[in-house]
Simulated assay, not measured.
Amino acid sequence: MVTTRPLNPTAASLLGFLHDGPQTGWDLVAAAELRIGAFWTLTRSQVYRELAAMADAGLVVAGEPGPRDRRPHSLTDAGRKAFAAWLEAGPGAETIRVPMLLTVTFGRHLEPGRRAEIIVADRQRHQRRLVAYRDLSAALEGTDPYAEATIAFGVAYEEAALAWFDALPSEITGGR
């Protein structure tokens, strides 16, 4: 049954990956983790739920089961059109959801030593991601301007996050 439903960004990203050819849910999870995982999270259950909904809507078609009963999904013409319409509409406003900001907002309720440990650990995560983005940027150089632009955002974001950590007052960081 073909129906029309507005695409959410998760479904749209799966349709985007399917432009590369038929893929199983497993393949799509791996592609998402590699290509967008640093800035857009997809759970395995979301992928399978969206694939089922998109198959019901006629946007994808499931192929014959392969090894481990995995079914490759292919993009239909309706899926291509729905993806193009979603992409053409523009991204809309983003929502900033940074768990560390919640921790800082309510940080006065934490023991100072624990608050400092949390801040140090989160700053280290951002530092590791910055290194990973820079490595990926170097590996991608000259290969794909779209991927390079996305990674450049990741680099700039991590640099901004690290600058924010470094500017936190000592009363929040405990002098660390």
Rank of each mutant, 00 (worst) to 15 (best):
V29H: 08
G25L: 05
A57G: 07
A31G: 01
A31M: 00
A32T: 02
G58T: 01
H19A: 14
G21N: 05
A30Q: 13
A52G: 03
L42G: 00
A52R: 12
R44Q: 14
G58F: 01
W26P: 03
G37T: 01
V29C: 13
A32Y: 02
L59N: 09
G58S: 05
G63V: 01
L51A: 06
E64C: 00
V61Y: 08
L34C: 09
D20C: 03
D27E: 11
E33Q: 12
D27Q: 12
A52C: 02
A55G: 01
Q23C: 09
L28M: 11
D56P: 07
A57F: 02
T24C: 04
G66K: 10
G25K: 11
I36E: 14
I36K: 08
G58A: 04
D56F: 10
Q46T: 09
H19I: 03
E50P: 01
W26G: 12
G66L: 10
L51F: 05
T41V: 04
R49M: 14
L51K: 11
L18N: 09
E64M: 03
Q23A: 15
G58E: 03
Q46R: 15
P22T: 02
S45A: 15
G25P: 02
T43E: 11
A55D: 04
V47W: 07
R44A: 15
G37C: 07
L42S: 02
R44N: 15
F39R: 07
L34N: 09
T24M: 05
R35V: 01
T43W: 12
M54F: 05
G66Q: 15
A53E: 14
L51W: 05
A38N: 10
Y48W: 12
Q46D: 12
L18K: 09
L51Q: 06
P22W: 03
G58I: 00
G21E: 05
L28P: 07
D27C: 02
A52Q: 07
V60C: 05
